[in-house]
């Protein structure tokens, strides 16, 4: 059985927004191997969260998956009962630790919830397992903390609780959507460390979403770079860092702060990610790209394979000629 664990094929997600139909995610494909680790990178507004929410079908009422298939271990999630997949087979950690826990329920009960919802074990054992998970994610005195309410905890603590709750059923896949973005730098490292350790202990595959390439390097094997709703590059981590195939990736790499030359002014890609209402035709990165040529603003660049483990959607790899 060499099925990928997760296969996203041609995903397009549309929102009704102010009478218009917008597509913040368009024709996105990637896959995650059993036990593997994939990073999804891109600036804020690239469509990473919408992609993640599409996988678990947690989109708001205004959104709809227009086209594409999402296969989990070979099963199309469109036909699977999502409530039995969520929390048991796929766990998810969100970007907003401060608001993602229910303020009126005890933390321990929230961590244990997936176990009881999926009838994995009786409530008493679920409690014990929840406390064990809280200990594993680094809460001291977990028996007592399990009785706390979310407002009694810091953001970092809450994110640990979220991770414990997402992993308590030992899902085969964890989707972590910018799990450290809302946290202090020192806490960020701790959370990443916990994720890494949990992955090693439980063998969970992971999709790690981030806008920070620095986070990706030591965590995942392969990377998907998203820009304005599209995948612009996919590569193994080594190739991506050594030899980025897309000008956007190059820009992201230059923007990563380096420990050794703090003197250098941090590079910023000029301009901003356009909102879905104003996606330009052709290559969506063209307005910000230093290498852009006329063809770039007219035609969408195809994905060109650069090696068996790397491809990029950029006209420069065809010599700016249509194939």
């Amino acid at each position: 059985m060499n099925n990928p664990l997760l296969q996203v094929e041609g995903l397009t997600t549309a929102f009704r927004a102010g009478g218009a139909l917008i597509r913040p995610v368009q024709d996105v494909s990637f896959s995650v191997a059993q036990g593997g680790a994939l990073g999804i990178v891109g600036e804020s507004g690239s469509g990473k969260s919408v992609t993640a929410l599409s996988i678990l079908r947690l989109l708001p009422d205004t959104a709809r998956i227009e086209t594409g298939r999402i296969l989990f271990d070979g099963t199309d999630l469109a036909t699977a009962g999502m409530t039995s997949v969520r929390g048991r087979d796929i766990g998810m950690v969100f970007q907003e630790p401060m608001t993602s826990l229910n303020p009126v329920l005890r933390v321990g009960d929230q961590v244990a919830e997936s176990l009881t919802l999926h009838n994995i074990c009786p409530p008493a054992e679920a409690r014990a397992r929840a406390i064990d998970m809280l200990r594993r994610v680094g809460l001291s005195d977990p028996e007592r903390r399990a009785q706390d309410y979310p407002h009694q905890m810091s953001g970092g603590m809450r994110q640990r609780v979220m991770i414990a709750g997402a992993l308590v059923c030992r899902p085969r896949l964890l989707i972590a959507d910018e799990p450290t973005t809302a946290l202090d730098v020192t806490i960020q490292a701790q959370i990443l460390d916990i994720l890494r350790r949990m992955r090693a202990e439980l063998g969970t595959a992971i999709v790690l979403i981030t806008h920070d390439l620095g986070v990706i390097a030591e965590f995942v094997e392969s990377v998907v770079v998203m820009y304005a709703g599209r995948v612009v590059e996919r590569a193994d981590v080594a190739s991506l860092f050594r030899n980025p195939g897309h000008p956007y990736t190059t820009g992201l790499l230059r923007a990563v702060p380096r420990l050794h030359d703090v003197q250098r002014r941090l590079y910023q890609i000029p301009g901003n990610v356009p909102p879905p209402t104003r996606f330009p035709p052709g290559c969506r990165f063209a307005p910000r790209c230093a290498e852009a040529r006329p063809i770039c603003t007219e035609h969408v660049p195809p994905e060109i394979a650069l090696s068996p483990s790397q491809s990029a959607a950029c006209w420069k790899h065809t010599g700016f000629a249509r194939p």
Binding site: L58, S100, L101, E113, G165
Partner: peptide
């Protein structure tokens, strides 16, 4: 029902009733 923690509950596999 629009709050983030409701999405979390769904992500844990809670059916609509729960």
């Amino acid at each position: 029902l629009r709050r983030d923690y409701i999405r979390t509950a769904r992500a844990r596999g809670a059916p609509e009733r729960v």
